[in-house]
């Protein structure tokens, strides 16, 4: 299956803004995160097709997955 993966803020450094990814059926968001060399702790927001998603959300063909880093300053 194919998904569109969008990275935001510092996750783009040394990576990309947007890319098509070929994944095995039933891949979870967590596997994509780890495959990028990111840790779960670095993840702020998981957005799946414009809505809040989870690390254990299962991806489907045609999904758009967006990953944002944790932001907590004031």
């Amino acid at each position: 299956m194919k998904i569109t993966l969008k990275l935001f803020a510092t996750f783009r450094n040394g990576r990309f803004k947007i890319a098509e990814q070929e994944l095995a059926e039933g891949t979870e968001v967590r596997q994509v995160v780890l495959g990028l060399g990111l840790t779960e702790e670095e993840i702020g927001i998981v957005m799946l097709n414009g809505r809040h998603g989870e690390l254990d959300s299962k991806l489907a063909n045609g999904d758009t997955l967006s990953l944002f880093p944790l932001v907590g300053g004031g």
């Binding site: 510092t10 779960e40 702790e41 702020g44 690390l55 880093p69 944790l70 932001v71």
Partner: peptide
Amino acid sequence: QIYRHWVAGKGIEQQL
């Protein structure tokens, strides 16, 4: 929900 994945510490502001 925004901080659902947070475990401890700060976010990217720590580095940036």
